Amino acid sequence: MSKLQNPPEEVRPSTRMSGVGRVLVTVYGVLALAATGRSFVQIVSKFDEAPLAYALSALAAVVYIVATIALVRPGVVWYRVAWATIVFEFMGVIVVGALSVMMPDLFPHDTVWSGFGRGYLYIPLVLPVLGMWWLATHRPAAPGSSSARPAAGPAGEGAA
């Protein structure tokens, strides 16, 4: 077989970037931009009013940026980074969401994850669940393997 018929993993397109995966990445990208813009404005203009809330919004922005990049990039390492960031995001939404409801004095101003993401139409709560499902069904190829394991799709998807 020639190298063109069986390109190395870093050259092959990621099977995570097809169909629903593209929508997922797009939503992560939009959320990354929204969280980055919001946290920047909050930190620059009124950080002293709610430093914990605004620092958490900035952390959420970084997590969304890294998750977006990791979902787009092929390979086992980026797959693991995607899992780590999405699980971290989910735990952040659950912990900050619960604390913001049970102890509202901790969060005098909302974060991206306050109230389980209510300020963002609960997308921060639903998105990591969809992301974890997508990652679980679109694993990268094992090192030395010639193809990624496809989930559902047209016959031969992901085959070399």
Rank of each mutant, 00 (worst) to 15 (best):
101 V>W: 15
119 G>P: 01
12 R>F: 01
9 E>Y: 11
131 G>N: 07
56 L>T: 03
78 W>E: 01
38 R>C: 03
53 A>H: 03
86 I>P: 00
2 S>M: 01
138 H>E: 03
112 V>W: 07
61 A>I: 12
23 V>K: 07
33 L>A: 11
133 W>A: 11
106 L>E: 06
12 R>T: 08
72 V>H: 14
158 G>H: 05
36 T>L: 14
42 Q>R: 09
157 E>S: 14
147 S>E: 09
8 P>T: 08
31 L>F: 05
155 A>H: 14
49 E>V: 02
121 L>Y: 15
63 V>N: 13
20 V>D: 04
154 P>Q: 04
149 R>Y: 03
117 G>V: 13
65 I>D: 10
52 L>T: 15
76 V>E: 06
124 P>K: 11
46 K>R: 15
16 R>G: 03
84 A>S: 13
104 P>H: 12
97 G>F: 06
86 I>G: 00
3 K>I: 14
36 T>C: 12
23 V>S: 08
113 W>T: 05
158 G>C: 08
10 E>Q: 09
80 R>T: 00
63 V>H: 01
87 V>Y: 01
64 Y>C: 11
3 K>M: 06
77 V>I: 14
99 L>S: 05
10 E>V: 04
28 Y>F: 15
136 A>W: 13
11 V>L: 12
23 V>M: 08
34 A>Y: 14
22 R>G: 15
131 G>R: 02
148 A>V: 02
116 F>Q: 03
127 L>A: 10
